[in-house]
Nucleic acid binder design. Structure first.
Lengths: 113, 113
DNA sequence: ATAAACCATGGACTATGGTCGATGGTCAAA
DNA sequence: TTTGACCATCGACCATAGTCCATGGTTTAT
């Protein structure tokens, strides 16, 4: 499918798709026509982009998401231990929460003094 | 005092001082010499920079800190209601904590499914 | 006199996740 | 055929808080 179609189906802008493409996060992107330079994006990319959006909700960086995709692409049969991935992300989130709570405490102390 | 001295007394690098200066967060900066272009930084800037560092610990942005300085500079006698400033910052922090806790919950749910 | 240490300016670079515009080529419908 | 919608690339820009480099002038100490 062309970029406009992928944009519609995935819900992200053309620019964003090109941005992901530049980061090499998409798959099966080809330029199949000799008479123009239009690209064809494999339909798997709809799902890829959904996964990106999903993981971003858990504060995964694009770089991390790309690494997961790369692992999967290099070794399609090997199952990624999602639990581990999420657990390490959980730890980071919990650390951030702790830090913010420290800040909160300090602020409360100032306000109540 | 010259920038090197201010750097020593405030504990931030020359570059950082110039960065703050570019943001117009410093005061009484002059070029008093005719024979060179060295600048003179008023000694109040030591305190300014300490305040910047202090407020940054509570996740104040430089822009916000500058606004506080600007208020004070425009109206030196009027007392800034610090309590209000910190309270509104507290609310933002608490909102961030809440959001992270939501993310944490969602992550836990995924991990435990 | 010469080297080291200091000063100034300006611009590039870091990470993050895009967005926007310019330019130019192509495709589809009226 | 011409207009509008689509496609491509490239580069600039946003916020954030600096850091680092190049270039060139000055001051201080030896």
């Amino acid at each position: 499918m062309k970029i406009g179609e992928l944009s519609k189906q995935s819900g992200v802008s053309r620019d964003t798709i090109r941005f992901y493409e530049g980061k090499e996060m998409l798959t099966n992107v080809s330029q199949p026509f000799e008479w123009n330079n239009y690209k064809d994006y494999g339909k798997e990319n709809v799902k890829r982009i959904q996964i990106i959006k999903y993981l971003q909700r858990f504060s995964f960086k694009l770089k991390e998401i790309k690494e997961l995709f790369d692992q999967k692409d290099a070794n399609p049969d090997k199952c990624i231990d999602k639990s581990e991935v999420f657990k390490s992300k959980l730890k980071i989130i919990e650390k951030e929460i702790k830090e913010l709570q420290e800040t909160r405490k300090a602020l409360l102390k100032i306000i109540n003094d």
